[in-house]
Write a protein that binds this DNA or RNA. Structure first.
Lengths: 330, 330
DNA sequence: TTGTACGCGTTATCAA
DNA sequence: TTGATAACGCGTACAA
């Protein structure tokens, strides 16, 4: 069922049908009615490819996420979906798995797919490439800041979040607070580590390198780190993990060694993954407004598409105190 | 950078360039070399829209998932991605949120996007529509069986899985085994319930309706169900939840009431979500080979695309015994 | 082996 | 207000 066929069946020209479809110009009421009837009668579906080729717009927004099955960006994707809904634009999502090479390919994929706009969620693709792309289509980046593209980047205050988490432990009387950090090359990991250090410093507590272990943001690394911590010579009464997934791993390590949370060791995570409400005990963590970030990103892209200047609202992080932290005993 | 421009720059016709790009016909070595050089020099990127319009193929496979941020289909998506990698085809994923209306729209989206094949993950869209679509493009369905399309459907043996889970509890000496079921209208939920009943029956244990509570596959409902169970008059020493998420909820309810797992109550889930290794204690559950399902689905679609008959390998479910189940005390 | 000419389904330009 | 007609960028018979 092509547009031309509809036009013939309705006894008008293809242009008229197209105009009705797009509201491009005025059409007499009678013709409009005839056309609309045949449109539904023939169950016409426009060919997006032809449309995109002719108009130069595909009504789609590319979304580069990192791991489609990772809980972390899930809510953000939902927010993006929601923010794009009823705008006429559709998200096209593809994942880069935190590998620069793959991310580049994914970006190429989206570009050749002629997406009208783009949202980049984290990742390690070179800033340079993102700037290039931003020159071609409206782009917004979440979870990373690209020099020269600051207005279109939304990063959260990881430093403050980590500071609040550590401060919370300090307020509970903890003095020996371990930190399971993320990959050192990762900006978020750096900021969270520095927030941790700053909180210690402000409280006049010494920074002990032996209490900081490096992880990779996955559960397994949290498990390993906590295990090493337990077996190590340093005493500690609390752990601040740079993300919830590593906190889960640490939780298991503690369980294995018979250490209770929070009675023996307090535990704090970062991200507030959906699952963190249901861990035993429910995890104290730093919530990132991931859903809202997705909505904001969608709104921003939509605005750019309309020619408006980029606008991303400031979004803060929030400490969520649950039951994995308690006042230090003894 | 269009193909025509490349052709001009290389001093050949557009057809020749096209032929080289697609390996359609023989081209002299010299021309090939010249063209390939200019191709890379000009950094040519084919326009997928034009290509799709002309060839009728978009080299994309539509994937209808239900909730992009749900842990359940995450691994399957990864498997699909992986199975499609290096095949030239790319996945285009969109979610239907278990709402028929939304799913229909999503399917329309994919169809108008002219995907070459389609993979449907669960969902409640009418069988009729799926049969229609299957008539237009190669389609495979996961987690549901569409009458008339059996060969292209991959369902797992939920009954056996539930049977094994329940049997496992019985073997550990449990006699009062509660079941937190899924939504009754859901086929998987029905099968898991029937597997549970069958295991009881085979062991000569009575089926007690008071020990079966209805959930909706989400954590919260598991929490509620377990809470009601605890407050109820019926004694029980084990819970079999129809999926891991509800098991997580139940776990928290038990924790809240001071009931230990597995010392006081044994707990079994279903799905083996990635997080179930790291719950405290690690959850005994029924593993579905979700990743493999994704890979198989991709292979099947690819085969159909090549004109081969549909082929989906039989995949079994497997009981994974971890630490949330133990021999009944007292 | 190579090039020409046409078609894919739609939008955009221009004239009427 | 409407209708030809020309793009859009590529694949592909067909001819050479």
């Amino acid at each position: 069922m092509t547009l031309a066929e509809v036009a013939r069946a309705a006894g008008v020209s293809a242009s008229t049908v197209s105009r009705i479809l797009n509201g491009t110009a005025n059409v007499s009421a009678e013709k409009r009615e005839v056309v609309e009837r045949t449109l539904t009668r023939l169950n016409y579906r426009p060919n997006v490819l032809a449309r995109g080729l002719a108009s130069g717009r595909t009504m789609s927004v590319g979304v580069l996420t990192q791991d489609i099955s990772s809980p972390f960006y899930g809510d953000t994707l939902r927010g993006l979906e929601q923010g794009l809904a009823r705008s006429g634009y559709h998200p096209v999502v593809i994942s880069g798995h935190w590998r620069a090479q793959e991310e580049m390919e994914a970006i190429d994929f989206l570009v050749t797919r002629r997406v009208d706009g783009m949202a980049v969620l984290g990742g390690v693709a070179p800033d340079e490439r993102l700037r290039e792309v931003a020159g071609q289509v409206p782009l917004v980046a979440l979870g990373r800041s690209v020099p020269g593209l600051e207005a279109q980047c939304l990063r959260l205050d990881n430093h403050s979040g980590a500071y609040a988490a550590t401060r919370h432990l300090i307020d509970l009387g903890h003095r020996a607070i371990a930190h399971i950090a993320g990959v050192p090359s990762h900006r978020d990991a750096q900021d969270r580590l520095s927030g941790y250090r700053a909180a210690l410093e402000d409280a006049g507590l010494p920074f002990d390198p032996d209490l900081v272990l490096e992880g990779d943001f996955l559960e397994q690394s949290g498990f390993l780190a906590a295990t090493r911590l337990i077996e190590g010579r340093r005493m500690f009464t609390a752990i601040f993990a740079a993300n919830d997934q590593m906190a889960y791993g640490a939780r298991l390590a503690l369980y294995r060694r018979g250490l209770r949370v929070p009675e023996d060791v307090s535990l704090v995570g970062f991200d507030d993954l959906p699952g963190s409400i249901y861990t035993t005990p429910p995890l104290t963590t730093v919530r990132q407004p991931t859903y809202e970030m997705g909505v904001a990103a969608a709104a921003c892209v939509l605005g750019l598409l309309r020619g408006e200047p980029p606008e991303l609202p400031p979004l803060g992080v929030e400490l969520i105190v649950r039951e994995s932290t308690a006042r230090r005993r003894l």
